[in-house]
Design a protein around this nucleic acid. Structure first.
Ligand SMILES: [Mn+2]
Ligand SMILES: [Mn+2]
Ligand SMILES: [Zn+2]
Ligand SMILES: [Zn+2]
Lengths: 142, 142
DNA sequence: GATAAAATTGAGAATGAGTCTCAAAATAGT
DNA sequence: ACTATTTTGAGACTCATTCTCAATTTTATC
C-alpha cells in the first residue's frame, strides 16, 4: 500500500499535482483489494467511511491512476467501464462467464510471447493487451 | 451477399420473423464492406440511399444479426459499441493503434490453440474470444 | 499570519449512446 | 375487404460519464 502511494505521489508531483485527501482516500480504496472494480462499486465502498468524496472526484482521479501506471481499464464486457490493478500484477488474460459474471484470471507466458511475436511482425509497438474469452464457467455450463 | 441473406432469412424464419425491407437494407449495408462498424457509421451509410430507415430499427436489427451468427460485437476500446463480420471471416486478433485508430487484423492459429488449452484447464466453455493489443502502429511510432 | 493566486472539490447540469414506448404502417391469414 | 400480428419511425427515457461553476482548500508572497 505504501509503494502505490509513492508511485502515485511521484506521478502527481511530476505533473505539478498534489496528493490531496480525496485522492489519497480513492487510492487507498482502490488498493484495499485486488478485485476488478467500477466507479459505482468504488463510490459505495468509499462512502462507507467518507461521506465527503464525490463521484466527480472519483471520475477525475481514475485517469490519474491510469496515467501513473497503477491501474488500467480492463476488457469492457458490461455497460460500465471497469478497471484493474496493473502495479504489482502480472499480465494475464480473462475468462468471463456470461451467465454469472465470474472472471477467471489466467497467466500465460505463451500467449504473451505469441502476441509479442505477432506485434513484431507488424512493426506494432504494444502498450498493453487485453485478451478475453466469453463463455460459461464450469458451474454455469452444467 | 446472397449467402448472408439466406443465413439471415433462415434465422428469422426459425424465430417467426420476416426479412422486411428495412432489415434487408441493413443487412446489405452491413455486408457491403468488410470493415468493422458502429451504429452511427452504419446509419450514415444507409441514409445515403434510404431516408426511411430509423436508428431504432438499426438498433433492433443488430441483435438479430448477432444471434444469426453473421456478426459479433468486437473488442470495445472506444465509446461506441462496434461490430464485425463473423460469417466468412476466420477468427483473428486485433492490433489497435491508439493514435490513428487503425486496426490491424492478424490471424493466429497458435493464439487460438493456446486459448483453447487454457480454457480446457479451467473447465471453461468458450463461446467467443477477443484478443487485442493497444499501442502504436508503425507509422505512428516514429 | 494575513493576502492574493492557483488548484481542487462537490453538486448538479449537460451529454450521448443505447433502450423503451406507442401509435401508425405493413404484413399474413381468412 | 377484415382482422390479428408484426414491424416500424419518432421521440421520450435511462444512465454512465463528462462538464461547469461557485465554494473551499492549498500554495506562494509579502
Ligand atoms: Mn484481471
Ligand atoms: Mn476484425
Ligand atoms: Zn458462471
Ligand atoms: Zn497509428
Amino acid at each position: 500500500m505504501e509503494k502505490e502511494k509513492l508511485v502515485f505521489e511521484k506521478y502527481l508531483v511530476s505533473k505539478g499535482l498534489k496528493l490531496t485527501k480525496p485522492r489519497k482516500i480513492i487510492l487507498d480504496t482502490v488498493f484495499a483489494t485486488h478485485e476488478h472494480f467500477n466507479v459505482d462499486g468504488l463510490y459505495d465502498q468509499i462512502r462507507k467511511k467518507h461521506k465527503d468524496v464525490s463521484r466527480a472526484t472519483i471520475y477525475r482521479t481514475i485517469p490519474l491512476l491510469v496515467e501513473s501506471g497503477l491501474i488500467k481499464q480492463s476488457l469492457r464486457c458490461l455497460a460500465k467501464d471497469h478497471y484493474e490493478h496493473t502495479y504489482g500484477h502480472d499480465r494475464h488474460l480473462h475468462l468471463i462467464c456470461e451467465k454469472c459474471g465470474k472472471i477467471i484470471e489466467v497467466e500465460s507466458k505463451e500467449a504473451e510471447s505469441i502476441l509479442k511475436k505477432l506485434a513484431k511482425i507488424h512493426n506494432f509497438d504494444i502498450k498493453e493487451y487485453n485478451v478475453g474469452a466469453k463463455g460459461l464457467c464450469r458451474k454455469c455450463s452444467d
